[in-house]
């Protein structure tokens, strides 16, 4: 199940790369670097989310930062 998910994600990202590559090839170097960086971030994050579905994320950080003021708002 998990391997299937990882394979599916990889296949999807490969499709995106294949779709964009003909146009990207003529583009400047910086564009290509940004494109592949975003793809890599997405790939790593997707695999992490498949392996650890309950991984703490930005929401937990926001909860941690704003919890005191949120609690004050709820009670008073």
């Amino acid at each position: 199940m998990k391997w299937g998910g990882i394979l599916g994600i990889t296949a999807l990202l490969m499709l995106i790369i294949l779709y964009e590559w003909p146009k990207l090839k003529k583009n400047i170097r910086k564009m290509q670097v940004v494109f592949f960086t975003v793809i890599t971030i997405g790939w790593v994050l997707a695999i992490l989310l498949i392996l650890f579905p309950n991984m703490p994320g930005p929401s937990q950080l926001i909860d941690f930062i704003f919890k005191p003021i949120g609690r004050y708002w709820e009670i008073s």
Partner: peptide, 12 residues
């Protein structure tokens, strides 16, 4: 070019 990668990131 970054529309589709960002779409993927948004879904994640």
């Amino acid at each position: 070019p970054i529309i589709l990668p960002f779409g993927f990131l948004i879904i994640l």
